[in-house]
């Protein structure tokens, strides 16, 4: 390798880095504010969907918690200054992925709605947990009835055919643990307030 080669290789790399860097910087400057805004918007929409009755600015973050060492949040939903329920984000260990779940409960701690924000379960089997027919099964369930059964049941949660592990993850590892946490966290806050 001659000095000329070394010079040319250096020049090559410099030009590519500079041109590429400028291009990426330009695209990033254009897109990142939009990405940030849309992320925020989508999150607000997802929360609003969980609690359609709540005021526009009535969903307030209460704090963070860490199911499976992942960052999750929980919220309180208010209407005209009165608490109408809570929303909890949680993670559950599914068959082939961590399932990111959002669910809302009323003040009686019965589940109102659940939504799967992200999952990568087996296509055709486990990913049916994201379909409305399964999510509807959670409506009105309390702690004692968040349990998976394999036969048709109105009282408990009926598992998706061929996807017991995913169903159990959402129900027991996800929603039930999230609800248990919420109740505990709210008690702690009450004690603090009384003091």
């Amino acid at each position: 390798m001659t000095a000329k080669d070394i010079f040319k290789i250096t020049a090559n790399l410099v030009v590519i880095y500079v041109v590429g860097g400028l291009l990426l910087a330009f695209v990033y400057a254009k897109t990142s504010p939009i990405i940030f805004l849309k992320n925020k918007q989508e999150k607000e929409e997802a929360l609003q969907k969980m609690m359609p009755n709540a005021d526009k600015k009535g969903i307030i973050k209460l704090g963070d918690w860490y199911p499976h060492d992942k960052d999750a949040e929980y919220f309180v939903a208010k209407k005209d200054g009165k608490i109408i329920g809570y929303i909890v984000q949680t993670f559950a260990k599914g068959y082939s992925s961590y399932i990111n779940i959002l669910f809302s409960v009323g003040t009686d701690f019965r589940v109102k709605k659940i939504d799967i924000l992200h999952s990568a379960e087996t296509p055709g089997l486990g990913d049916e947990i994201t379909l409305p027919y399964f999510k509807k099964r959670f409506r009105g369930k309390d702690l004692a009835h968040l349990k998976v059964v394999k036969k048709p049941s109105k009282e408990y949660i009926e598992a998706v055919t061929g996807a017991t592990i995913s169903s159990r993850a959402v129900t027991e590892d996800g929603v039930r643990k999230g609800l248990e946490f919420l109740i505990k966290a709210l008690k702690k806050r009450e004690v603090k307030h009384e003091q």
Partner: peptide, 9 residues
């Protein structure tokens, strides 16, 4: 990376 950012936006 360009495609990734444009699609995300």
């Amino acid at each position: 990376t360009v495609v990734d950012m444009v699609m995300a936006a």
